[in-house]
């Protein structure tokens, strides 16, 4: 039997000083090659959970397994298995796309030849070939988003964690990114995605989990959930389950 892409068991976590969201006896399973969406209002714990899965935060209790590898025990070797696309631009603006990919490719464990090959491929796919040698600081928001994605997938990760990968981009870039993500998924990459762009999420995700204050309040196939709650779209489902009050009171 294939291991799960992500297997979270009895997760316990809280920020120091009791501020922010906390998780207690939290469980979540994401199957391999799934297009999984993680949604919830601000402060629900989406980004914290993403950080716990990628090792940016350390869990207090329980376990997180990535493709069967315990993140606590495997330490850095498990990081080869996944890619992470943070919400913030995570590259060096002083460098060109080629130079960024060269550096992050090396840090992802690739060799020079492979980096060159992947760089050419990715820049072509994401429409950055023309600006391959220009400093990133001069790029538009859409170009930066595409580069952010390219860096995260240069080492062909088996799981891709995406935190708001299309925030602040035009429709063309959004469509290009979503199509590319679907393409990656067709080739077996598991997508773990979070966003406030619910229409985009409907298009991309097959399965979703709705989080609120560190707890899963709904978790199933999107179509099943919509039918179960008699909603036509994700936005209606979201409001139905989480209410209309402001939720970003955690500082």
């Amino acid at each position: 039997m294939n291991p799960l892409a992500v297997d979270i068991e009895n997760l316990g976590f809280s920020y120091p000083g009791q501020s922010g969201v906390s998780f207690s006896h939290f469980n979540l399973k994401i199957a391999v090659a799934e297009r999984f969406g993680l949604f919830g209002p601000n402060g629900a714990g989406k980004t914290t959970l993403m950080y716990l899965m990628t090792g940016l935060l350390s869990l207090r209790e329980g376990s997180i397994r990535i493709l069967g590898n315990d993140t606590k025990r495997q330490n850095k070797s498990v990081n080869r298995l996944f890619g992470f696309i943070p919400q913030d631009f995570s590259f060096y603006e002083e460098l060109s796309p080629v130079e960024n990919l060269e550096f992050f490719g090396a840090w992802s464990g690739l060799h020079r030849k492979e980096i060159r090959k992947r760089t050419t491929e990715l820049l072509e796919i994401l429409g950055l070939t023309e600006v391959r040698n220009k400093q990133v600081r001069k790029f538009s928001g859409g170009m930066k988003r595409r580069l952010n994605l390219a860096i995260g997938v240069i080492h062909r990760p088996r799981i891709l964690f995406l935190d708001e990968p299309t925030v602040g981009v035009d429709v063309q870039t959004r469509v290009a990114i979503i199509n590319y993500l679907k393409e990656l998924n067709k080739n077996g990459t598991t997508l773990v995605y979070t966003s406030h762009q619910l229409s985009e999420a409907e298009d991309l995700c097959e399965k979703i989990a709705l989080l609120d204050e560190g707890k899963i309040i709904a978790h199933d196939d999107l179509t099943k959930l919509l039918a179960e709650h008699r909603q036509e779209g994700l936005e209606g489902l979201f409001l139905n389950l989480t209410g209309k009050n402001y939720r970003d009171y955690h500082v």
């Binding site: 090792g55 940016l56 070797s77 943070p86 995570s90 992050f104 992802s108 464990g109 995260g152």
Partner: peptide
Amino acid sequence: LNGSFIRLKTLPTN
């Protein structure tokens, strides 16, 4: 402080 640090911490390098 910038995003690159977050990315570096998720990569298989110390």
